[in-house]
């Protein structure tokens, strides 16, 4: 699955962004399938905005985002849903779990959205064990700490098939040990699917062996 951006600029940040040089904004960039992409961005340069544009939940931009050579707006709602179920997964910065569901239900929601789930329940338990969240699986997500929620959100994103994984500061609430475990799991899962990811963060890091670096 090919993701391409052409002269992408967020309308609200236009004036500010045109005054500085960026590797992404207002450029033609093509993300080659299967590559691990790191986008480093200082605060306020539109990091989350970019991820939302790539995932097509915000539309206030000029330029185009091409997915498989089709601009996002040409996809209808059901096609978009299919893409999100099978081609592209996301870990939101603000996690976005359902508070009325338990941790494991939040993961299962994504898992069973497809009539034929990609992961088995055992696989989910195994991933939870690797991220040290087995003990909170049955708890209401309302009662989880932010770090626990972040790991649940990671597992949720990994419970579906995808070609691209979008991550917006995925380890912001994790300590070093848990970050290492999560990064290993993500890398493994991406490799297993021959998938790539686009990760945005504030600083440089060594969590993955990145193929490409961009400065936002």
């Amino acid at each position: 699955m090919q993701i391409q951006i052409q002269h992408l600029l967020p309308i609200p940040l236009k004036d500010k962004l045109l005054q500085r040089t960026s590797g992404i904004w207002n450029q033609d960039v093509s993300f080659s399938p299967g590559s691990f992409v790191k986008i480093k961005a200082p605060s306020g340069t539109g990091k989350t905005t970019l991820v939302h544009y790539l995932y097509h939940i915000r539309y206030d931009y000029t330029g185009t985002v091409l997915v498989n050579n089709r601009p996002w707006p040409s996809y209808n709602k059901n096609e978009l849903a299919t893409m999100r179920q099978q081609q592209i997964s996301i870990i939101f910065q603000d996690l976005r779990l359902f508070e009325q569901l338990s941790a494991v239900e939040n993961i299962n929601l994504k898992r069973v959205m497809l009539p034929n789930p990609y992961c088995s329940p055992e696989k989910i338990r195994e991933m939870a064990a690797r991220l040290n969240v087995t003990h909170v699986l049955q708890q209401s997500s309302k009662t989880l700490s932010y770090g626990e929620r972040q790991r649940i959100a990671i597992i949720r994103a990994l419970s579906q098939p995808f070609q691209w994984l979008l991550m917006d500061e995925p380890f912001s609430h994790l300590d070093e040990e848990n970050t290492r475990r999560a990064a290993n799991l993500i890398a493994e899962e991406c490799k297993a699917r021959n998938a790539g990811f686009i990760l945005t963060d504030l600083d440089d890091d060594q969590h993955f062996s990145y193929d490409v670096h961009y400065q936002l």
């Binding site: 939940i57 709602k77 059901n78 849903a81 299919t82 893409m83 999100r84 179920q85 976005r96 359902f98 929601l109 994504k110 959205m113 579906q160």
Partner: peptide, 15 residues
Amino acid sequence: REIQLLVMLGTAPRQ
């Protein structure tokens, strides 16, 4: 809000 989040996560409107 729940419906919006469901759709965001990939739930099809027809579902």
